[in-house]
């Protein structure tokens, strides 16, 4: 715990210190309190789109990844109601795309799958949308499978803010949203994306994959085969 000079909030009753400018998510992660999330990655500007990290602050729901921590906030996160809603959102993400875990080479390393494990998802609950989405294998080293995109825009942010390339962007609207790439042909192979780009390291699902590496680690020996996403994401700091 911080000294009595530092500012604090409480999360599920636990006193959590924070520094000016930190969000509730920042403060929580620093204090080893896990709030489920998919579109958030502490290395990038918070986005606030997946809404999994929604918490209740003084009775009102807010996205913890974008909401600044303010002295005295009483935050509820690990509650039956919120976890139930997070589960529903996760199920929504599964049915709006085509997430076939058994045939996906990201299985076991996929954050969407891991969050579903964490929240105890036993079925998709909703009817599958089975959307028609394009797969782009034009790049020599990268496969873009839009069936697995959850619109977190981490690749968009990484390519823009770190790689300085603006390879990715979103087009369309609503359920017709689609990940587009920065080339007149619309093909990834015609962009200047490199497999070593930051944008290639941030996809929480199997939408962006490096080719020829899918099964270097066998299924059963992958991250979330042995660890919960909570342990991994809180442990990220040490890696």
């Amino acid at each position: 715990m911080g000294t009595f000079m530092s500012k604090t909030i409480t999360i599920d009753g636990q006193v959590v210190p924070f520094k000016e400018g930190q969000t509730i998510m920042d403060a929580a992660m620093a204090a080893d309190v896990y709030i489920p999330h998919l579109c958030h990655n502490p290395e990038f500007t918070p986005h606030g789109s997946c809404k999994l990290c929604t918490v209740k602050v003084n009775g009102r729901n807010v996205a913890s990844c974008t909401m600044p921590a303010v002295e005295g906030q009483q935050v509820l996160s690990d509650t039956l109601e919120l976890n139930d809603e997070r589960l529903s959102l996760t199920q929504m993400l599964f049915v709006e795309g085509n997430h076939i875990c058994p045939s996906c080479e990201k299985s076991g390393n996929c954050q969407l799958q891991a969050v579903a494990y964490y929240l105890g998802m036993m079925s998709p609950h909703y009817n599958h949308f089975y959307p028609q989405r394009e797969v782009d294998a034009s790049h020599p080293d990268v496969l873009l499978d839009r069936n697995r995109c959850i619109y977190c825009e981490l690749c968009v942010r990484a390519s823009r803010d770190v790689d300085g390339k603006n390879v990715f962007g979103l087009s369309g609207r609503g359920i017709g949203s689609t990940l587009v790439v920065n080339s007149a042909s619309g093909l990834l192979g015609d962009t200047n994306l490199a497999a070593t780009d930051k944008a290639m390291q941030v996809c929480p699902t199997g939408a962006l994959l490096k080719k020829r590496q899918g099964f270097t680690v066998p299924i059963g020996q992958r991250i979330f085969d042995h660890h919960t996403i909570k342990d991994v994401q809180l442990g990220d700091k040490h890696e």
């Binding site: 606030g48 789109s49 997946c50 809404k51 999994l52 959102l89 929504m92 993400l93 049915v95 709006e96 909703y126 009817n127 949308f129 959850i150 619109y151 979103l170 369309g172 609207r173 609503g174 359920i175 017709g176 949203s177």
Partner: peptide, 21 residues
Amino acid sequence: FAHESCGFCTPCRVGTQLQKK
């Protein structure tokens, strides 16, 4: 609403579709 959802957040992007269906 399903037509006009901007698609940014999960609950609205998917939820308005589910309502429509």
